[in-house]
Write a protein that binds this DNA or RNA. Structure first.
Lengths: 204, 204
DNA sequence: TACCGTGTTGTCCATGCGGACAACAGCGCG
DNA sequence: CGCGCTGTTGTCCGCATGGACAACACGGTA
């Protein structure tokens, strides 16, 4: 049925299938048979690549989260542009995976560790951007670390409203995220976009 | 084994057991046998009170969310006190239920409807408090509806960090929540508590 | 007291699960 | 050419699940 493949390719294929099934059914309801069917493969093959169901799920989420992180620009153009960029909602499916992972974290130490690692990474980027903006005089934020945590939490909470509950739309998400960021940085309405413009053309 | 009881009492007892099991195992992993064991009852009895597993879970979450809502003070002492109060973290178990429900919502229209109802209710209270504060001159918020949505989302996001990931502690939660609220309302640090004090003694 | 309604139980069933494993197939090396 | 390594399959097992149901127990009523 399924042609023989290079182990690494096959492994990645299985992980991608697992991500798709997790997004569709939720972590707890994922079945090895579902994943195998998604990949077009006998379910026994999964045992050949992963020791257990738990291993597969953790590896799958780690891959998906890693790809999300890789999509952020490697060298952010400017602090304001970085924060402004994070105010744009992601493609639909991604955040549902995160929300599901949150709910699973209290019962899966391994998943919790992966989640904490990725959240820390995002937060560190935001913290760096806020400090850099302080240094460049774009804004004056007395508590960059706290503001970074609050900013990331704000995005997560808005994502719940947008992706899980459909109580806001993508434009509302972006508007409220920008407004919250401006509040945290002590900027007025439109201040973030203005700061980004100011950075794009260093000297007026 | 279990003594005969009044139907309403027994039903409430089963729902409370279900809430406990949901909090412990997560929605998707809840077993009728788990719930029955938690309640000290034969699992067949659940069929006597609920048509299906889905019915039981939805009714259980609705009960828990309703009880959470009932714990909010009936007539908020003052707008500032209301918002300040919501910045205090809830008892641990409650929010895990909410996070789990978010992740289940995209696959359960009934649960999604219950969630939207309760979120709307909380948000409406915050919106009212913000408008009332505007009217009393405690602060000046140009977009109360947006601020209410953002405030609730901020609390939800911080709850994820606190309850699911343990990346902040209860004090950090309260501090960041207050700070975010002040940002949304255009108040300086400590401005919320100051407004609450000012309200407690109407005229200096 | 006898009886009936109903809350409660224990058991049964079909289904689907994760995991184990023996057998098969095809490629590359000797 | 033959052979072994390994990716792949299909099948089997023990087990837990949601649901169905007949039998039981007990309180209220006649």
């Amino acid at each position: 049925m399924a042609a023989r493949k290079a182990p690494e390719d096959r492994r990645a294929e299985l992980l991608r299938a697992a991500v798709a099934v997790i997004a569709r059914r939720g972590f707890a309801a994922v079945t090895l048979r579902d994943v195998a069917a998604e990949a077009g493969v006998a379910h026994g093959l999964l045992r050949h690549y992963f020791r257990s169901r738990g291993d597969l799920l953790a590896a799958a989420f780690d891959l998906a989260a890693g790809e999300d992180a890789a999509q952020l620009p490697a060298s952010p153009p400017s602090p304001a542009a970085h924060l402004l960029d994070r105010c744009e909602p992601l493609p639909d499916q991604h955040y549902l995976l995160w929300i599901d992972a949150w709910s699973e974290a209290p019962r899966s130490p391994e998943l919790a560790a992966i989640l904490r690692r990725h959240h820390s990474s995002c937060e560190r980027a935001a913290d760096g951007a806020i400090r850099e903006g302080n240094a460049r005089g774009l804004w004056s934020c007395p508590d960059p670390a706290g503001a970074a945590t609050a900013f990331e939490a704000q995005l997560d909470g808005l994502a719940v409203q947008l992706y899980a509950l459909h109580r806001i739309d993508r434009e509302g998400y972006a508007r409220l995220a920008r407004s919250a960021a401006e509040g945290l940085l002590g900027l007025g309405p439109g201040g973030l976009a203005a700061a980004a413009d100011r950075e794009r053309v260093p000297a007026t």
